[in-house]
Simulated scan of single mutants.
Amino acid sequence: MHILITGGAGFIGARLTRTLLARGELAGRRIERVLIADQVAPPADLAADPRVRVHTGALLAQCQALADEPLDGVFHLASAVSGECEADFELGLRSNLDTTRALLDALRRRTEAGATPVRLVFSSSVAVFGPDPAIPLPAVVGDDTLPAPQTSYGTHKLVCEHLVADYTRKGYIDGRSARLMTVTVRPGRPNGAASSFFSGIIREPLAGEIALCPVPPDTAHPVSSPATTIAGLIAVYEASREMLVGRTALNLPALNMTVGGMLDALEAVAGRAARELVRFEPDARIAGIVAGWPKAASAARAARLGLQPDRDFADIVRQYIAESTS
Rank of each mutant, 00 (worst) to 15 (best):
133 P>C: 04
129 F>L: 04
164 V>T: 01
123 S>V: 02
114 G>K: 06
133 P>N: 11
127 A>L: 03
157 K>F: 11
122 F>R: 04
128 V>L: 13
128 V>T: 14
132 D>K: 02
111 T>Q: 04
123 S>W: 04
118 V>L: 10
131 P>T: 10
154 G>Y: 11
150 Q>A: 15
110 R>C: 06
136 P>H: 06
156 H>P: 09
152 S>D: 07
161 E>Y: 03
165 A>G: 01
116 T>F: 05
153 Y>P: 00
156 H>E: 10
134 A>T: 12
147 P>M: 07
121 V>G: 10
161 E>N: 03
107 L>D: 03
152 S>A: 15
146 L>H: 04
164 V>W: 06
147 P>N: 05
115 A>C: 07
113 A>N: 11
162 H>C: 13
125 S>T: 02
123 S>N: 00
158 L>N: 06
119 R>Q: 15
158 L>Q: 06
118 V>I: 14
136 P>Q: 08
145 T>L: 15
155 T>W: 03
121 V>S: 03
158 L>K: 04
109 R>M: 13
158 L>V: 02
129 F>R: 08
153 Y>R: 01
109 R>N: 09
127 A>R: 10
130 G>F: 00
111 T>M: 06
140 V>P: 10
158 L>G: 00
165 A>W: 10
153 Y>H: 11
149 P>A: 03
163 L>K: 07
158 L>F: 09
127 A>H: 02
116 T>E: 15
112 E>S: 03
150 Q>F: 05
111 T>E: 13
157 K>S: 11
108 R>V: 08
163 L>H: 06
139 A>M: 12
125 S>A: 02
118 V>A: 05
134 A>N: 13
125 S>E: 02
112 E>M: 13
124 S>E: 11
116 T>C: 09
123 S>G: 13
151 T>Q: 00
134 A>Y: 10
157 K>V: 01
112 E>H: 09
136 P>N: 14
139 A>P: 11
148 A>R: 15
146 L>W: 06
147 P>L: 09
145 T>H: 08
107 L>C: 10
162 H>F: 07
126 V>Q: 13
144 D>C: 05
165 A>M: 04
126 V>W: 06
156 H>R: 08
140 V>L: 09
157 K>I: 09
121 V>C: 14
136 P>D: 12
110 R>E: 03
107 L>R: 07
135 I>P: 09
135 I>F: 12
143 D>G: 12
130 G>L: 09
116 T>I: 05
162 H>D: 13
161 E>A: 08
154 G>M: 13
123 S>I: 08
114 G>F: 03
158 L>D: 05
138 P>H: 11
153 Y>I: 01
137 L>S: 08
160 C>G: 05
139 A>F: 03
145 T>D: 13
163 L>Y: 03
164 V>I: 15
158 L>I: 08
122 F>S: 06
127 A>K: 05
139 A>V: 14
132 D>N: 14
165 A>E: 15
163 L>M: 14
165 A>Q: 10
157 K>W: 00
135 I>D: 15
119 R>H: 01
113 A>K: 12
135 I>V: 15
147 P>A: 07
113 A>I: 03
134 A>I: 01
137 L>E: 15
157 K>E: 13
165 A>I: 04
134 A>R: 13
119 R>A: 12
152 S>R: 14
133 P>Q: 09
153 Y>G: 01
115 A>F: 05
130 G>R: 02
146 L>N: 08
112 E>G: 04
129 F>E: 02
146 L>M: 08
145 T>N: 00
141 V>S: 07
121 V>N: 04
